Amino acid sequence: MMKPHTLTAVALLALTLTACSSRRETEPPRSATEQLLFSTAADRAADKLAFNLQPGTRVFVDPANVEGVDSKYLLSAIRDRILRRGGELTDKKDDAELVVEPRIGAISVDADRTLFGTPAIPVPLVGLQVPEVALFKRSHQQGVIKVAATAYNAKTGRLVQSLDPVYGFSNRKDWTALIFFSWGSTDLMPEEDKKDWVGN
């Protein structure tokens, strides 16, 4: 008859052998979901910036105070909204009539997770881990962007418009029940595109 500690070791090994594993090989460091959380929140925040422009106004969007992950996408979204409102973009401040200076108060992804069950447990001797046992699990990721902007006369430096902070949010939620049943919801893309997304 096997000793208790031997039975325990065998059970742990059996559990590790049934665990699923994956390894990144060619993907970039950040997942598509994280990128979508940033870009979707950026689009929604940019939509709320109510630029008051005369058609044909030459505008320089100053990137000096814009930093952070995906800030270039947010800047591009702001430029797009200026064009939609009749502005004309210029890459040189000296050629502009109006300077728009965006400032970012937040550009990040928050995450929270609730688990009723047993978390994954590493097994140091074999370099594997006992898989997670989720009787119920909920995870929520939210993209959050806060952006404001100041528009001033490029020649005189006088204030033309001060835009109060606006916010953009995006969400991804996932649930697991009784280990095997999983489902999720997201607002990261139109409904017609969700069926083709492996991450949904």
Rank of each mutant, 00 (worst) to 15 (best):
G184Q: 15
F169C: 05
F136K: 09
F181Y: 13
W183D: 10
S182F: 02
T156C: 11
I145T: 00
W183A: 10
A151I: 01
V147T: 13
V126N: 04
V99Y: 03
Y167W: 07
L125F: 15
V123L: 08
S108F: 12
L188N: 03
L159H: 03
D112N: 13
W183K: 01
F136G: 06
T150L: 12
N171S: 15
G157S: 07
F116L: 14
V99P: 03
D174S: 10
I104M: 02
S162Y: 11
R158W: 00
A177Y: 09
V166M: 03
V100E: 00
I107Q: 15
P131L: 08
V99T: 03
T114M: 09
Y152R: 11
R138M: 05
P131W: 06
D174L: 04
A177G: 07
F116Y: 15
I145D: 00
F180D: 01
E101K: 11
P165D: 12
T156L: 11
T156W: 05
L135T: 11
W175Y: 14
W183G: 06
D110Q: 15
L159S: 08
D174K: 12
S108Y: 07
T186S: 13
I179L: 05
R103C: 04
K155M: 06
F169K: 14
P119M: 02
E132F: 00
A106W: 00
F136E: 07
S170R: 11
V133C: 12
V130N: 00
R172Y: 15
T114K: 14
G184T: 09
Q161S: 05
R138S: 07
I121M: 15
V130P: 00
V109P: 09
A154W: 03
A154T: 03
G127E: 13
K155L: 13
T150E: 12
A177L: 05
P122Y: 10
K155C: 04
T156V: 15
S185N: 05
T186E: 07
V126R: 02
V123E: 02
R138P: 03
K173D: 12
L135S: 04
Q142V: 06
D112F: 12
F180V: 11
Q161Y: 05
L188Q: 07
W175I: 04
A96Y: 13
A96C: 02
L178M: 15
R103E: 12
W175V: 09
S108R: 14
A96I: 10
Q161P: 01
D164G: 09
Q129T: 05
F136S: 10
T186K: 06
G157P: 10
I145W: 06
I121Y: 09
